[in-house]
Amino acid sequence: MEAVLELRGVTKDFPGHRAVDGVNLQIPRGAFFSLVGPSGSGKTTTLRLIAGFEQPTSGEIWLNGRPIHHLKPYERPVSTVFQSYALFPHLTVRGNVEFGLRQQRVPEAARRLREALEMVQLVGKESRYPSELSGGERQRVALARSLVVEPDVLLLDEPLSALDPALRKQMRSELKNVQRRAGITFLLVTHDCEEALSLSDRVALINQGRIEQVGAPEEVYRRPKTRFVAGFLGPVNWIGEIGIRPEATRLSRQAPDGGVRTAPATVTESVFLGNRVHVRARLGTGEEIIAEVSHSDGLYRTGEAVHVWWRPEEELRFDGA
């Protein structure tokens, strides 16, 4: 795997707290890479360090084999899509998208402009002003504007968080398409784990300024290295020392066959969620668990005694944390 962007021991201190703590990252060329974490975890700061809006307190940032951590933002071949899009209100769509091309005096600007607009499907809207566009259209302008300068890495700071849920899902697949077609490395920062898992080739989880795990989405989901990673990527039933995902937690009215772990429980609630059912039950040992069951099991009634069981290979175990 060839790393186009590398962070080596990057630390950023602000007065009073350490936002980024010794972060090491290798982002593969051409990948859709996500940096996920809760608010305040340092993910946006990391992005700003890469873009050049902040300087690292210590550590190095390398791009294509060159150190860039001393360079100004306009000297770095990276481009950012801001959370608020930061479109220039006094320029049209065309003016916004060709801004970088003009500032860098790129030849064949007209052709690249046209291609970028086609890629985000905004052809025909060149003369509109940002104030005349919808939220989704503005996001696409921001994307086109950053793509058209052909950066080595495209940084996206929670680009979909300002959109309503229905639009968000639609934009997700568009984003993935654009990345594939453009062939540019994307680095997405988000707190939405579903977004990260669905879009990315690789995911890095960050918590309190530290990287907790990096890997392919399925890998970090199935084999989380820390309790934080497990809990962040989805709901987890904590039973004693181990965790089980609700979709791996099964219920049965009779005692299950051998080869599985089991525990007796009492149903407390059955929640119908449309395409699946979540059944809450309390174990004999007191823990509350959620089991994801299908309709064919029939309805579980409150107070019903059930057996909770799961396969041992689906257990999530952690050392220490």
Binding site: A51, T80, F82, F88, F99, Q103
Partner: peptide, 11 residues
């Protein structure tokens, strides 16, 4: 952020 965006795009 508009100023950051401009610098980001190479201005």
């Amino acid at each position: 952020t508009l100023l950051e965006a401009a610098a980001d795009l190479g201005a």
